[in-house]
């Protein structure tokens, strides 16, 4: 029996419906999960934290969502190897929850940036890198997308091959051109661009398909 893909919703998540539809279009069974409810993570083949403005970015982007009860189960799932993907605000939440290293800070332009970017796959291990394609055209839409981490963390990410995606032309001042990273076990991945908005060619690109499909398909 094929398992479900959990789509987490926090107060202020706004890309949940797009992510839900994209998962469906890729032939999987999405199911919404609610921030305040614990859930049985064992019955999900993968989890996705969509983008948005959880808690209106109070304190820091993702800071309050990272403390939500459902995140306890996300942490358990992460520890047990379940593929987990954070997109945009989901990336910020995973960093704030300590599941990924570093932080996302204000774009160097100081502006909200809504544009198409080219990213390159640089990670090579784990479920989220089995993509069969090297270069992706994806949309970004964020004001806090500039990846930041201390020098030694950046070095460790480079040395251990935990950088998942890099911008070909850095749009936001992200350190080391980082657009997406992986955790040590490589089952938790996150990126600032929106693969769910590039699923069909009429959207402007369908490069998001293989990126999403890799982790969803490589599920246990």
């Amino acid at each position: 029996m094929s398992k479900k893909v959990g789509v987490l919703r926090f107060l202020g998540t706004n890309c949940d419906a797009d992510v839900y539809q994209a998962i469906k279009d890729l032939g999987h069974t999405p199911e919404y999960l609610w921030w305040s409810d614990r859930f049985d993570w064992k019955s999900y083949s993968a989890l996705v934290l969509p983008g948005g403005f959880s808690y209106g970015d109070y304190l820091r982007a993702g800071a309050l969502a990272a403390q939500a009860p459902a995140m306890d189960d996300v942490k358990q799932a992460a520890k047990s190897g379940v593929p987990i993907l954070g997109i945009c605000n989901g990336f910020q939440i995973l960093c704030e929850a300590g599941l990924l290293s570093g932080a996302l800070t204000k774009n160097i332009s100081r502006q909200f940036q809504d544009e198409w970017v080219e990213v390159e796959l640089v990670g090579s291990d784990g479920p989220w890198t089995q993509v069969g394609q090297k270069s992706f055209r994806l949309p970004i839409a964020h004001s806090m997308g500039r990846y930041f981490a201390p020098k030694d963390t950046l070095k460790a990410l480079e040395d251990d091959g935990l950088i998942w995606l890099k911008y070909k032309r850095n749009p936001n001042g992200s350190l080391h051109d980082i657009s997406g990273i992986l955790n040590k076990n490589r089952n938790v991945a996150a990126l600032m661009p929106h693969p769910e908005r590039a699923i069909h060619s009429w959207m402007g690109s369908s490069d998001g398909r293989s990126l999403l499909q890799s982790g969803l398909g490589g599920a246990l």
């Binding site: 209106g56 109070y58 309050l64």
Partner: peptide, 14 residues
């Protein structure tokens, strides 16, 4: 202060 309220309820939940 909605931000204060949101932070307070998160802290109390913890």
């Amino acid at each position: 202060d909605p931000q204060g309220r949101a932070v307070q309820s998160t802290l109390n939940r913890l």
